[in-house]
């Protein structure tokens, strides 16, 4: 019997998801032994036309990381959807947009201006901006078009499963791959794989008491006590709004949860849940003081939606 075919692809992402796959260490050999890797641009060199030549649905499993930012990302998502039986949104970018999705707070024009003109290290006195088509003596050159905003994978093609995380933790990746290698039945379509069904708080070893917060701190403004809940100490921790699955890596070492496993199962909007959680712990009934305490949270959108802006309730259908 031939081995099941596996594909991995990256769209608008940082490459961390690829590293996370390699972080399963020697088990990568088992992946190779059990799958035929037909497409993985990060480690081998197949071309677009090779994928195009594959019969439809011939890839058994495709792990797709990265959000959809350019026309090329979209084209690859559509092609891989066509060629794959099971398409997985792998990692936070494909799932909810992640850090690259924060760029949705700005228009394409202002992003280009910032990146290609204003950054201190940029020298661009001719005001050259990337163009989808450029005429040169030899003919026309094309590059993918940067779209107005970044969208999660599920916004352009139907997605069968999601593996959250920035990046997904290696033991979780292995658990999913092992499940498939052992030929076990797949969970219902649409399931989130390689993660828990609770919040990060439920995996946190710190002790929680009643919270009464008069001001919020950023991590560098305070040295946290080692055993007490970080939010109890006024440190903005996204644990209450974030899906479990990482094993509480950050909170165990005194760093507040940044929210990389995305929205928690019961609350689809991570930012909304964070606002609810923080509002419950603010110790004030005075409107002015409340305002002051709320303002002590630096950058609420970037903090509460650090990983999920593009997939959030308002972010999903922003023009």
């Amino acid at each position: 019997m031939s081995k099941p075919k596996l594909a991995l692809y990256w769209a608008a992402s940082c490459g961390g998801c690829e590293i996370a796959v390699l972080d399963i260490e020697e088990k990568i050999l088992e992946v190779d032994a059990n799958f035929e890797i037909v497409f993985w641009p990060c480690v081998m060199d197949p071309k677009y036309k090779d994928v195009q030549a594959m019969p439809d649905k011939s890839i058994d499993l495709c792990l797709f990381n990265g959000g959809i930012r350019t026309s090329e990302n979209k084209k690859m998502a559509e092609l891989l959807r066509e060629k794959s039986q099971v398409l997985v949104a792998f990692g936070s970018c494909a799932h909810e947009g992640c850090i690259p999705g924060l760029a949705n707070l700005y228009s394409k024009d202002s992003l280009f201006k910032r990146v290609y003109k204003e950054t201190p290290t940029t020298e661009n006195s001719d005001g050259v901006y990337p163009q989808p088509v450029t005429k040169v003596p030899e003919g026309e050159l094309e590059i993918p078009e940067f779209q107005e905003k970044l969208v999660p994978l599920s916004a352009v093609v139907p997605v069968d499963y999601t593996i959250p995380g920035c990046p997904p933790q290696p033991h979780q990746i292995w658990a999913v791959l092992e499940h498939i290698i052992q030929g076990k039945a797949l969970p219902p379509q649409g399931s989130v794989l390689g993660a828990g069904l609770k919040t990060c708080c439920d995996e946190c070893p710190r002790t929680r008491e009643e919270k009464k917060i008069k001001r919020f701190y950023r991590p560098h403004e305070i040295i946290p006590n080692e055993t007490q809940c970080l939010l109890d100490q006024g440190i903005v921790c996204c644990g209450p709004a974030t899906r479990s699955g990482c094993g509480g890596l950050c909170v165990k070492v005194g760093i507040p949860c940044r929210g990389c496993y995305g929205a928690a199962p019961e609350s689809p909007d991570q930012g909304a849940k964070m606002m609810a959680a923080l509002s419950s712990v603010i110790d004030s009934q005075d409107p002015d003081e409340i305002e002051q305490i709320v303002n002590s949270v630096a950058d609420p959108v970037g903090t509460f939606y650090r990983f999920s802006l593009a997939g959030s309730m308002l972010g999903r259908n922003r023009k």
Partner: peptide, 12 residues
């Protein structure tokens, strides 16, 4: 609680 949430929401 609603007041605190609304302050957060408005900022957001």
């Amino acid at each position: 609680k609603a007041l605190r949430r609304s302050v957060f929401l408005k900022r957001m």
